[in-house]
């Protein structure tokens, strides 16, 4: 098994670092960078939902926290020391930077916050939610509500958050000009490296004793309790990890696309994060990644050609996969091969 995993990672590295940059135009490569950000979110959802049974329908919250943390720093850096970011000059009746913007001027703080802030929020939320034994559909609905609440909060604070527009026109990335295609490539490489690193991390988690326990909690939470574990803690770990991954994804999305806005983190994007995972195969390692990339690609291509139809197509695809192939497309391959590992994959 070990050499197969190593070979898989090597192949992934060749595709991401060799083939893709060689055959794709700058424009296509930057699109791929965006898709890989969604894949980063998907890896976390695969862990929390596929292995832990937590239908995380509100990952937009954590994606947003990471994205805004990064964008705030970049906006401050663009504005230069002592200046307000452009949108604040426009809308805000502000004379000085709000206190909660100030720490983000520090690059180390901002970078740490992109991952740690979502994790802290997830820790607080998860502790409340799991202790109270909120689960299943209630957990999913609550997650959606949080995504909606975050959007409302952001839109309501136009002067300090950019409102509906979000934080846009980001020009620089730690001293590199994002208009330069060379730097755009660098951003792509960073994202690809993060994806591979995260996959290695999650693979380790899935194969660890914790990974086995997580599956046990997913399949029979009460039984685990009677063994002396607190399932709330087990779920919390996966939830917080997935939030950190979504935060990282949001942070990398900002230099890749140049914007973060409420429209990218609300209810609909939160559902879209999950759809790719469901289609690819939620309990597998690679299924969520491939599903997320495929769905994002299909969205770009099809919504260009048939605007309006995409949302229905996406919904239909989701329903069909859940109904016919609950293990996602990854289970199709497994079904054909009848690999013994399949037992871990089906909830």
């Amino acid at each position: 098994m070990k050499w197969r995993a190593a070979a898989g990672f090597a192949l992934g590295a060749v595709v991401l670092f060799g083939v893709a940059p060689a055959v794709l135009s700058d424009f296509r490569l930057s699109l791929l960078a965006k898709y890989l950000c969604f894949a980063l979110v998907a890896v976390g959802i695969g862990l929390a939902w596929g292995r832990g049974g937590l239908l995380t329908l509100g990952q937009g919250v954590f994606f947003g926290l990471g994205g805004y943390a990064m964008a705030m720093h970049l906006k401050l850096a663009d504005a230069g020391e002592g200046n307000l970011p452009d949108f604040m000059e426009l809308y805000g009746q502000l004379d000085a930077l709000p206190w909660w913007w100030r720490p983000f001027a520090n690059p180390v703080f901002a970078l740490a916050a992109t991952v740690l802030l979502p994790m802290l929020v997830a820790l607080a939320l998860g502790t409340l939610i799991f202790r109270r034994r909120v689960r299943g559909a209630y957990f999913a609905i609550l997650s959606q509500a949080l995504a909606a609440a975050m959007v409302i909060l952001l839109i309501g604070q136009q002067g300090t958050t950019g409102g509906t527009n979000g934080l846009t026109d980001i020009e620089g990335f730690f001293g590199y000009d994002l208009d330069d295609p060379v730097n755009q490539r660098m951003v792509y490489f960073i994202i690809a490296a993060c994806l591979l690193g995260l996959l290695a991390l999650v693979r380790q988690l899935m194969h660890s004793r914790y990974g086995e326990l997580l599956v046990a909690v997913r399949d029979s939470e009460e039984r685990v309790r009677f063994l002396g574990y607190n399932p709330a803690t087990v779920k919390l770990v996966a939830y917080v990890a997935a939030a950190g991954m979504a935060g990282l994804a949001g942070a990398l999305f900002v230099p890749a696309v140049g914007i973060i806005s409420p429209a990218l983190i609300g209810i609909v994007p939160s559902i879209e994060f999950v759809i790719g995972v469901a289609i690819g195969g939620r309990a597998t390692l690679l299924g969520p990644v491939l599903g997320a990339v495929a769905v994002a690609y299909a969205k770009t291509t099809l919504s260009e050609r048939f605007p309006g139809a995409w949302i229905y197509l996406q919904g239909a695809l989701f329903v069909i996969v859940i109904a016919v192939l609950p293990g996602g497309l990854a289970s199709l391959a497994r079904l054909l091969r009848r690999q013994p590992h399949g037992r871990l994959e089906h909830p």
């Binding site: 599956v215 046990a216 399949d219 029979s220 009460e222 039984r223 037992r343 871990l344 089906h346």
Partner: peptide, 10 residues
């Protein structure tokens, strides 16, 4: 009530 998806050892 055993974990059906896991092995005896697990």
């Amino acid at each position: 009530a055993v974990f059906e998806n896991l092995t005896v050892l697990q």
